[in-house]
Structures are given as C-alpha cells and as structure tokens.
Design a protein around this nucleic acid. Structure first.
Lengths: 193, 193
DNA sequence: AAGCGGCGTTGATGTAAGTCAAGCAAATCT
DNA sequence: AGATTTGCTTGACTTACATCAACGCCGCTT
C-alpha cells in the first residue's frame, strides 16, 4: 500500500526500516471513484493527500461558471489546499479525481504527531512546500510573460506523460486558455516539424 | 530602529519585553540607496529583509530584456528569494530599492538561532509563508482568468497607497501588461465615473 | 537657464487569443 | 444496439492587448 510513498519519501530523506514501520499508523488509506470529490469549496480541507494511484486536480469555479485548475496531482504527488489545511478556514478549492484513485490521507493532527516522532519529516514537508513555491512562481512568470504556446511547450516538456493522462480541455484550463486555442496550438506544433 | 518591526510582529504573536530585547542581536540593520541592489541574479540570497522604511521590489529579467516584477515590499513587509535563501542555490531574482530604504536583515543562521531561542517566531514565519502562498495563488488565478483592468482594480483596492509610491510602469510590469495599456486602463476608469 | 533623460500619454496599426457555432468520433448510458 | 453525452477540431468573426512612434511634462544635471 505505501510502496510508492516510501519510494518518493526516500528520494528526499532516508528512513530506516523501523521509521517506515512507525509511519503507517498515521495514514488513512482511501479510494476515490472517478469524478468523486476529496474536497468541496466551502468545506475545510482536513487532509493532505498523497496519490498512490490515479490523478487528482484542485480548481476554483468563478462567477461565470468557468473552472480554473490550480494543480494536478499525478501518482507520487501530494495535493491539498494548504491554506485551509493549516488554518482551518473553509477552502475556496474543489479537489476531485480524474480517474479512480488510491490515496493516503494525513490529517493535521496526525502530521504533528508524525513530525514529533520522526522529525525528518519536517524537512521532507518543508522541501515539498519550497518546491511548490518555486513551481508557482515559475508558472506565474510564465503566464505574465510568455505566449500560450510557450507555456504549453514548457508544461509538456517538464511533464511528458501528463498529455496522455489528462484530458486536453483540462490542460487548457490549467494554462488559462480555451480548449479551442489549445487545439489550434497543437495543430501548429504538429505541422511545424 | 525596530519599532515598526515589533509592531508588525505583535500583530501575529505576542512578545514579552524580554523577548523583544533578545531579538535585537539577530538582526543587521542596513540602509540602501535608491536603485541599489540588495540581491543580484546569480548571487545567493543570504538574507531575508524586513523593510522598516522605503520600498523594494524583486524581479527577473527575461531573454528579451524585459523585467517581470515578482513582488513589491512596502514598509512593514518582508522580501527575499525564499528558495535561494533556504537552499543556498543562486537566485534568479534581482532585489533593489525604489527609493532610499532602511532594512533589517536576518541571515538563515540567525533565523535558526532566533527560532531556537523564541519558538514563537517559527509560527510567525509560517504565517508569513502561508499568506504569501495564498496571495500568489490569487494572483495566478487572476492572471489566468481576469482582464488586465480587473487585475489592476483588485491590486489597487487591496493596496491603495501603492499607487502613490510605485511608478506606474512598474505596476504594469507587476500586472504583466505594458505601460501603454495601463495608461489607457486608467483613463477608462477615470472617465467612466 | 538651458539641456537632457525618464515617465506617462495618445494615436495608428498589428496580432494572439476569445467567442460562437457546427460537426465528428469516441466513450457512456439504458 | 441505439441514444446521448463528452471531448476535440475547424471556421468565421471579435476583442483585448501589444507594438511602434511621437509628443509633452517634469525633475536632473551642469
């Protein structure tokens, strides 16, 4: 159940066998069906979720009903509304599954205990947050200064695989463009070689 | 020297007199002339800076020579490249002063000692980082989904005062639009009342 | 005081991306 | 299997913003 989790964690910090064994109690495993919500806007984000299998996304819906995807979480990634999770305020994001998924959930109480028992995990989560911050900064600068095509190419280069796993109109939403525009960009790129 | 600093800190956590007195040793005060760099791209960001007086900005310069402003720091705000600061990697950002400024600098070594002596500061900085994250998320969603005019209005509403303090072309750069477009937007808004 | 450079404005024109509408193929439901 | 929905594409047209160029206004310098 936690194979992928330990693989990813051990890329950043090194856990002993005992530490690994001690981890397990803190996580709740959960399966999600396609289109099922993990979090709905207005609710409090009670868990950080590690994706063992499947794909999730977080997004907001604006007044005009348009969805804006904040984040995808492929296998081996974390997803949550960190703000709501840490403060207990209601979230403005929805999180749902693009396909059937298996998750490991960590509540904030469990997280604190985990930090206390295995302090290395503080480091692990700090690294995750840092990486998240720089990714968001890059994305912001991209959206302010690059063309839709450039942003698309960067996304796909940084993340091949995604293209097969995520429907195209969601990639468009993530990039902040319409599905039509993305379709035309892809046509351009295809013929231009 | 640290009046504004304590005022801001005490909005989030409550320091006793003794704690305040103990703080002082960890900070280095520094004055910056208008246009002077606190950090140049390629260097490591050795300090987080609290702005006692003046205004700073962080920005990148792209291949075409255009500047993209990541953050402004008005009086009472913090500025740094958190990533470079925490990892020791060279920064991609420049940080400089828009006008003569007075800063309190905190090195990462000093920060650790401060956390150790007054653990409340961990909380304080965690709150800062959280607020920074949600601000960045909002800005990203804005830039993906709103018009230039809407983004401008939100910025000014969230931050009156800024308009008087920051040159208009830098606000344009922050919003990811040209100075000409911002000028036209402002004209629109002015005549439309 | 004269000269200069930076900043904001305005106009004319260009272009990337949005909108609306239609059509088709594949997936999903009954 | 037939019906319905969902996702992707394509075309015609519109729109928001960029680009280029010119001009006036201050605040510097000397």
């Amino acid at each position: 159940m936690l194979e992928l989790f330990f693989k990813k964690v051990n890329e950043k910090i090194n856990l002993t066998e005992e530490e690994q064994a001690a981890c397990a109690q803190y996580f709740i495993s959960k399966k999600l069906r396609k289109k099922q919500y993990l979090l709905q806007a207005g609710d409090v984000c009670k868990y950080s979720a590690f994706v063992e299998k499947g794909i999730l996304r977080s997004y907001t819906t604006d007044e005009k009903g348009a969805e804006h995807i904040m984040q995808f979480a492929l296998e081996g990634w974390w997803i949550a509304d960190m703000y709501s999770f840490l403060t207990g305020e209601p979230s403005i994001y929805n999180i749902d599954a693009l396909e059937d998924a298996e998750l490991l959930l960590l509540s904030s109480a469990a997280q604190e205990k985990l930090f206390h028992q295995i302090p290395k995990f503080e480091r692990y989560f700090r690294i995750l947050i840092q990486n998240n911050m720089i990714a968001m900064q890059r994305r912001l600068i991209g959206s302010l200064s690059l063309s839709a095509e450039e942003n698309y190419v960067h996304l796909i280069n940084a993340n091949p695989g995604m293209l097969q796993l995520v429907p195209q109109h969601m990639i468009a939403s993530y990039l902040g463009i319409t599905p039509e525009t993305l379709s035309r960009i892809r046509k351009q790129l295809a013929t231009r070689r």
